[in-house]
Design a binder for these strands. Sequence first.
RNA 1: GCCAAUGUAGCUCAGAGGUAGAGCACUUCCUUGGUAAGGAAGAGGUCACGGGUUCAAUUCCCGUCAUUGGCUCCA
Length: 650
Amino acid sequence: MEKITITLPDGSKREVEKGTSALDVAKSISEGLARNVLAAEVNGEVRDATRPIDDDATLKLLTWNDDDGKSTMWHSSAHLLAEALEELYPGIKLGIGPPIENGFYYDVDFGDHEFSSDDFKKIEQKMLELAKEKNEYQRQEISKQDALDYYNKKGDEYKLELINDLNDGEITFYTQGNFTDLCRGPHIPNTGFIKAAKLLSTAGAYWRGDENNKMLTRIYGITFPKKKELTEYLEQLEEAKKRDHRKIGKELGLFTFSEKVGQGLPLWLPKGAALRERLEQFLKRAQKIAGYEPVITPHIGHKDLYVTSGHYAKYGEDSFKPIDTPNEGEEFLLKPMNCPHHCEVYKSEPKSYRDLPVRYAEFGTVYRYEQSGELHGLTRVRGFTQDDAHIFCTPDQVKDEFKKVIDLVLYIFKTLDFKDFTAQVSVRDPKDHSKYIGSEENWEKAEQSIIEAAKEKELNYVIEEDEAAFYGPKLDFMVRDAIGRKWQLGTIQVDYNLPERFELEFTGSDNQKHRPVMIHRAPFGSMERFVAVLTEHCAGNFPMWLTPEQVAILPVSEKYNEAAEELSKKLNNSDIRALVDDRNEKIGRKIRDNELKKIPYMLIYGEKEIESQSLAVRKHGEGDLGTMPVDKFIEHVQNEVQEQTGTFNG
RNA sequence: GCCAAUGUAGCUCAGAGGUAGAGCACUUCCUUGGUAAGGAAGAGGUCACGGGUUCAAUUCCCGUCAUUGGCUCCA
């Protein structure tokens, strides 16, 4: 028998017979491992663990701990869902059923069947019943004609359409139990791996995402190899619901919306405004240290400005309509971005290479016509404020500027306790450089600069090809919040387009005119979105330095209200944001209510404290901390704020 | 923008073809208290908006607006 060599991730090599499957290799290592193998990565390609390996190969066994293992399991689960649905609703037609980040879905045409989410239980039970049969997922290569014949017989026009787009020779079917599906794979060895299944929601989805096509019923679900993991997942969903910034924003009085003002236009309430201003001050201070110069530009701009920038041609039709001046009939646009304005700021005076880099910063409020169905709390709105800045520099300065911006972003993440984040570097499509503006040389330099900057700053980064904008490469920060959800926050983008379009120049040391490079950057992204993400990240328990109200003084009875007011003044004079809960309520009630308001410190204030000149301190979520002298408490709070905001060295 | 669901008091929600309900919040009074809900009384709604059906519509139908979940989009 012919032998092949399998190389495992740890570098160890095994001689096995040709045609051995990844699962066999796993078994030879340990039965326990074999029981957990969902799929295999063979020479970098994810495939069925049961498929024979015919040549020397590197092999990684994929389990539930690997993203590819999870998605293989969920892909197989989509098939299991389809099998259950076919048994319960004979004659249905199937669209596609892929895995997604958290689970999977299947698009189904139920035809005449009545279907509602009330049937979820029934379907879940059927899925688990079928899973118990431990049916193997069997791969079968099939000719295009045979595949078409199969679905013609079945009468499923969706699958026929999919097959028609495929080439003969690359078509495979997978069968488990009584269900066969057109599928590229890969799949888990058998349905027995699926121990828990939950259908989560339904939604309408057009066939192939095209609104001219028929709407299918999309059923979302998720499965797990252990029942306990499903329970935990459902708990996490509950937790996410509790942390929803729309709910917390309402409870804490941060922001609201009004139908009269218009959809997607947030109104910041006093406490939300206080929070946001604090964030802005925080960034302004750091930006000053980092050499940014604040500028202020208007909320509207002449249409020509956007014609020049190219935004009008690209987005004009999808924007708010222009505003006309009554007499001259000139057209102005609500500004959808700050950069064209900043380009004009740059042009206000001739620039020398000695001036560069110049860094213009502005908390600029912009308005974009987002489709009504896209609006969502503060994360997707029509009017929002970017913590925008534009850096104009020479191509040689790009790397240094990137490093500086990365420092700033890292300072923010550290201060706000975002510990888990990655950077995504978006570069050109390596196969086609023609769709990008700017010279080959500059692009090459910029992409390298970004990658080197990321490397030197020791960022955990991935490079995404073909994700760059037409005008330049970029680096985006993706953070994971306290309950594991991913958000895209800060962004740093190189732009060759606008300097070109606005004919920006500087005089070089050679006394010749040169074109600067522009870097857009927004560490928060937008204040709205950032506050939303931060709210969910900390579940409304904002850090001391940021929270609108830091200390609640709770007089034990109305007799002490006046003394409590005095104390409040003293604290406020020490830059501590304190309030007095002088309601005619018992102390227990005041504690409860202020706990719910998530105020970090409560001071129970009565006869004892007044006499002893001390404070009974209670911390949110922790309880009674005992007593301390007033001055010590002030110092304690001030230190806490100081520690939280730290220092930034630019 | 498209599909679906939802829209009742400040909030969370119940309700039914015949003049609208609860809890919390709010106001007043009683109570003056020591670490997560003291008691009583009161006030508060054009049942999203506009049409239609009906003797009668907040309830049924249509449209609009908004919200939610998806789809598509995101400079």
